[in-house]
Simulated scan of single mutants.
Amino acid sequence: MAEAANISEKGALVRPPSIAESVHQRIYERIMALEIPPGARIPIDGLSRDLNVSQTPVREALTRLEREGLVRKAHLIGYSASPQLTHKEFDDLYKFRLMLEPESARQACLKLTPETLADIEAAAADMEKGEQPVDRNSRYSRFARADAHFHDEILKVADNATVRQALNDQHIHLHIFRLMFHTRVTQEALEEHEQLLAAFRAGDPDAAYKAMHDHISFSHDRLVAAFE
């Protein structure tokens, strides 16, 4: 029997997630929560039994996670969780971000329209509100995706496809959130986002540059303790 659709609070029809989407989400949450440790092999047959699904949606989920940078596939070995960032890789990623994201915030501020500002504000609000997660793991992993979406909305408005692709190819937010799973998801990050939004609302490109620069620098300082 097909799964019944749910009705949202607004009365709209909400279809349940597909099996493939559900399997992807469950594996993603395990990787982000370090239940599947960095570098660990991910046997398809074992996951299939554990999740009580066929191997097909597991393969589809792992292929998608490989595109997202959280899983690697090796010939004759199969899938494994991507290794954790080294200290140097972590520092290099943050240097890379500081080269590109503050200027992208400045450019976004210069190009903002009421509509694109509303999109950025909606992405920021989703980090604090959004769909209610069922447990700590899903809450944490949803926050990671929402954070990536917020930063990508700014890059979209900045309208430099090369910069946006370069940052997205690094899967930065997913990797750095794995580092901090056992620390708090900081209120400071949300407050820093608010400083950035204030600059956008004021139409102040220099303040937007500084707010993004400060946010990335503070994020680095919060996370570097993971290597100590």
Rank of each mutant, 00 (worst) to 15 (best):
F177S: 09
E188T: 01
A123L: 01
I216V: 13
A5C: 05
H75C: 13
L117R: 00
T86M: 02
V157M: 13
A211M: 03
G203M: 00
R178Q: 08
A158T: 09
I31S: 04
N6M: 13
D50F: 07
E228F: 08
S22Q: 15
D45K: 14
E66T: 08
T63S: 12
K88D: 12
E89D: 09
P37R: 15
A208C: 06
A166H: 13
E3H: 12
T186Y: 11
Y28A: 11
Q170K: 14
E194Q: 03
Y94D: 13
K95I: 07
M99L: 13
A108C: 11
F90G: 07
L62D: 05
F177G: 04
A124G: 02
S8T: 10
S80N: 04
A226D: 04
A199Y: 00
R222Y: 09
H182W: 13
Y140T: 04
F218V: 09
R49C: 07
N52S: 14
F218P: 02
E9V: 15
S80T: 03
E115W: 00
T113Q: 03
P17E: 15
A33W: 06
E29S: 12
G78N: 08
A207C: 02
R139H: 10
A198N: 10
E188L: 06
N137I: 05
A40W: 05
F218Y: 11
I27F: 09
D92P: 03
H213T: 01
R106K: 12
L179Y: 04
T183R: 13
E188P: 01
I42H: 05
L196Y: 04
N160P: 09
E101Y: 09
R72W: 08
I36T: 05
E192P: 00
F90M: 06
E29T: 12
L223F: 12
N6Y: 15
S219F: 07
A105F: 05
N168Q: 15
G203T: 02
Q132R: 13
K88W: 06
K88I: 07
A158W: 08
D147K: 03
H193L: 00
R67E: 14
L117G: 00
R142S: 12
K95E: 12
Q195V: 00
Q165C: 10
